[in-house]
């Protein structure tokens, strides 16, 4: 998803851009009071953006299309799950980058309008690395444009999906000129895991990075979210571990029960209503109770996080990590 706060239409209000797993980029337009609800980011003809594969929300299935391919090009099947707006040609308006979750390519949509009235082209042009399309190893979970160094040119920060546990974070330095970006070989900011993980010590699959000076020392630190897969060999637990296991299991089960109780509360509230009314009421209640569902979900996940090295079935954890920049300058 990887949100981006950016004034996409230069109206003085920050908008919120975000990709989606379904393959459509969205924009929540900013206004004087905050944000409107998200809508499709659209091209100059009013069509949603996408690569050549996306989820059809109306029909609930995947669709494969060709209409957004650049003229004369047949790129492989692509799912555009990430979006980022950047002033590609340094003329003051914003282009849009789309990252491909399936093939590792990054495409761009040119802004043929202006900063205040963006008009994005209707087809996807692959970003190139020399005479070939730039292809990110392990495919693209997300792409962000930022200034890594002080050369005045934006660089690309990319989190890769990875085949299993080999997601990584790459930096593609812009080695071109102002208004004419070009990218070299990637710099590995966060390498794939070297061996199967034995603890939830780092994200290893589906990496979503950002760079920010968290500690205020003047350099960029790495924030990265993603999942960690664990599949530990079975072993005998010590007495202390067994005690810990029981404690955490109790917490996890309590969170599961609390969530089930909320679900039962909703079921009871809608059970005597006509079908359509029940559907609407259910949706409203789910929204109303969302914070409590989230609380249950997080408490359950925290207990499961604690159980990570005490249980031995394959499992997956999701969290955000930070690594401070220690480069000596």
């Amino acid at each position: 998803m990887s949100p981006q706060f950016v004034d996409f239409d230069a109206d003085g209000h920050l908008d919120l851009l975000a990709g989606s797993f379904g393959g459509a980029p969205y924009i929540a337009r900013g206004n004087a009071k905050g944000f409107g609800q998200p809508e499709y980011l659209r091209d100059s003809k009013g069509e949603r953006l996408g690569l050549n594969m996306y989820w059809d929300h109306d029909e609930s299935h995947w669709l494969w299309v060709k209409q957004w391919n650049a003229p004369g090009q047949e790129p492989p099947e692509g799912q555009g799950t990430s979006v980022f707006a950047v002033d590609w040609d340094a003329d003051g308006d914003l282009y849009v980058l789309l990252g491909d979750f399936k093939t590792g390519r990054i495409f761009r949509r040119t802004n043929e309008g202006s900063a205040k009235e963006p008009r994005l082209t209707t087809f996807n042009v692959p970003i190139r690395n020399g005479d070939k399309p730039l292809v990110v190893p392990g495919n693209v979970a997300t792409v962000r444009a930022l200034h890594w160094d002080s050369d005045g040119l934006f660089d690309l920060l990319v989190g890769s999906v990875g085949e299993s546990d080999d997601g990584a974070v790459y930096l593609y330095r812009n080695v071109g000129k102002t208004g004419a970006p070009d990218f070299g070989a990637p710099l590995v900011l966060f390498a794939p895991a070297a061996a199967p993980l034995t603890a939830v010590s780092r994200p290893s699959h589906g990496l979503y990075p950002d760079l920010f000076d968290l500690d205020g020392d003047g350099d960029l630190d790495l924030l990265v979210g993603g999942s960690t897969n664990l599949n530990l060999p079975e072993r005998e637990l010590s007495a202390a571990e067994k005690e810990q296991y029981l404690l955490l299991k109790t917490r996890r089960d309590a969170a599961k029960e609390a969530s089930a109780a909320l679900r039962a509360e909703i079921d009871a509230a809608v059970k005597d209503l006509p079908e359509e009314e029940a559907k609407l009421r259910r949706k409203a209640l789910e929204r109303e109770l969302a914070p409590r569902f989230r609380d249950c979900s997080r408490r359950r996940a925290m207990a499961e996080f604690g159980l990570a090295t005490l249980t031995f079935e394959p499992k997956e954890y999701h969290a955000v990590f930070v690594a401070l920049n220690e480069t000596r300058r």
């Binding site: 979210g225 993603g226 925290m302 999701h318 955000v320 930070v322």
Partner: peptide
């Protein structure tokens, strides 16, 4: 590399593929 905490919990825990900014 360390997990980030949000209040008493780990940031992003209980969600899927958290993406920070």
């Amino acid at each position: 590399i360390e997990p980030v905490k949000a209040d008493a919990l780990l940031a992003g825990i209980g969600r899927r593929y958290p993406s920070p900014v």
